[in-house]
């Protein structure tokens, strides 16, 4: 049988998927054990127990100075920034993307501006945002919004233009106005596609969040890892990175499920 026709069944799929993770973990544990055997005070590759201790300290015990459970507090602060920013971006992208994609006048007016603006590296704007908006949450949200919304707008506009021309003609022959077409034909078809685009922008959104928190903050997941970096506290940094990854993965998964449940027609339409 040809290799490309060899498909693992469900059990095998799970086993195969677990394999790289297990290998990674094993390699880490071996490396860590070797280094610690040489020097018990080594900080670079802390043992799993050391990391467990750190997590317990950060997540399950209140901080003696502030009385806060630091890891939860960091998570809450980061997630609220991220979700607020993504909600704003998504809304902007939906409105402007559809306007630009559907109305030639809007496309001619705003298409080029959005195209140029989306080429500005958002991190380069961070100092400007901090100067204008101060070091608070507003600047961080603004950074994420600028960093993701422009790409999302372009994406939605392109996908609107990709709708078969026949559909828009058909709607007109059914007597629809521009507004009705936007509302009943374009918008509902853009929502599931927008979910795909947002999933792709989750990575950049986290990047901007952590960068902003690293520079100016007093809480947040990014703030914490950059803070403890000074003490080479790998036993905190590594669990935090894993936790951030897990959060991002869960957000991605949630969006995928939302797409499947809320837009049951989409899988079939995409395949067609």
């Amino acid at each position: 049988m040809r290799l490309l026709n060899l498909k693992p069944d469900r059990t095998w799929s799970i086993a195969l998927a677990a394999l790289p993770f297990a290998a990674l973990l094993a390699a880490y544990m071996m490396g860590s054990a070797m280094r610690l055997a040489e020097n018990p005070n080594d900080k670079l590759l802390p043992s799993l127990t050391a990391m467990g201790e750190a997590v317990k300290h950060y997540a399950l015990e209140p901080d003696p100075r502030s009385g806060l459970y630091l890891m939860w507090n960091d998570t809450l602060s980061s997630m609220s920034l991220l979700l607020t920013a993504l909600a704003i971006s998504t809304f902007i992208a939906l409105v402007f993307g559809i306007l630009i994609g559907l109305l030639p006048i809007m496309g001619a007016t705003f298409g080029p501006v959005v195209g140029v603006a989306s080429m500005v590296p958002p991190l380069a704007l961070l100092p400007i945002l901090f100067i204008i908006m101060g070091l608070g949450d507003a600047a961080k949200i603004a950074l994420i919004v600028i960093g993701t919304a422009l790409k999302l707008i372009r994406d939605v506009a392109l996908r609107v233009e990709d709708l078969p021309r026949e559909q828009l003609i058909k709607a007109q022959t059914l007597g629809a106005s521009t507004w009705q077409i936007g509302l009943r034909v374009v918008l509902p078809q853009m929502l599931p596609r927008l979910i795909d685009s947002v999933r792709l922008e989750l990575g950049p959104a986290w990047l901007f969040l952590i960068a902003a928190e690293a520079i100016a903050s007093d809480s947040g997941l990014g703030y914490r890892i950059f803070l403890v970096r000074r003490y080479l506290a790998m036993d905190v940094i590594i669990p935090y990175v894993i936790w951030i990854t897990l959060l991002a993965f869960l957000m991605d998964l949630a969006l995928r499920l939302l797409q499947r449940k809320a837009f049951p027609w989409f899988a079939g339409a995409r395949a067609a």
Binding site: P164, E166, Q167, I169, K170, A171, Q172, T173, L174, G175, R184, V185, P188, Q189, F263, W265, F266, G268, A269, A272
Partner: peptide, 27 residues
């Protein structure tokens, strides 16, 4: 195009996001 002139194309004539019933009702 307006409601005086109906059209059926070879493909893409119906709205994929609407059920059969909703596709007819939408007019």
């Amino acid at each position: 195009p307006d409601a005086d002139r109906g059209v059926v194309f070879q493909r893409y004539s119906v709205f994929p996001h609407l059920t059969v019933l909703a596709n007819v009702m939408i007019g």
